[in-house]
Amino acid sequence: MSQDLFFQHLANGISLGSLYALIAIGYTMVYGILRLINFAHGDLLMMAAYMVFYGMLIFSLPWWLSVILAVILTAALGAGIERVAYRPLRDSPRISVLISAIGVSFFLENLGTVLFGGRAKAVYRPDWLAATHEIGGVSIMTLALVIPAVTILLLLVLSYLVYKTKTGMAMRAVSRDYDTARLMGIDVDRVIGFTFVTGSTLAAVGGIMWALRYPQIHPFIGVMPGLKCFIAAVFGGIGNIPGAVLGGFLLGIGEIMLVALFPDLAGYRDAFAFVILILTLLFRPTGLLGEKIAEKV
């Protein structure tokens, strides 16, 4: 493989990986605080993408205003889901909440089919985002530079939020023990609600970036990214925010390199991701950056 070719593949891998990383952050944050894998995360990104689409089409809003509104509405939707589907199960076994999350995921997919129809829709993309640059024989789209930048920015903002602010301290306390946190005067419901708002905001940003990169949306658009980013989060160490970013980048680059180096295995690209998941769970369940946490009793 020539050098140019290798760098082009690497650029493609980073571009895909940064998207995975962006979505995996939201997954891992909700898990880190609540010990809940929010399976509806992928479907929230679908809803966000549709909100941008309809904001521009029906209400003829400028694209940036549609994006801002979609992020706010998705955050509200996330809070609503938490209120309706997760909060009533706060004292139930964790598996009940997990099943509820799967239910919400199916609900959003079918709701999307009823509301938006099963046919795919094309997403508008501003021209400046789609402009391509030739850098030393490697073609890179502006968007492929914007997405990693957004990912890193959100990583920093989120790390600051969780580790440096009072709310973040409350979140970490809640993640340890609801009852003790409550005794310390923390409003657990409010903190968890806030966690979901933040997680859904991340899903919205991820969904919009995904729709800009692959400008076709349909009600099941969130399923595959949802699964892949879950794998990325587990690979990096679920609950660990920098781990999710690392996992996302490695998964994206790994997938691209698999297809590039072994074209015959291209059909097994998704299988490759799932094999990584299984191997991680077998040999390093805490992931690359995850630390051993004693299971609370």
Partner: peptide, 14 residues
């Protein structure tokens, strides 16, 4: 080849 559900074809296209 690519797989059903793939949205990124950059590896094949490169």
């Amino acid at each position: 080849d690519y797989q059903k559900g793939d949205q990124d074809f950059t590896a094949q296209l490169t």
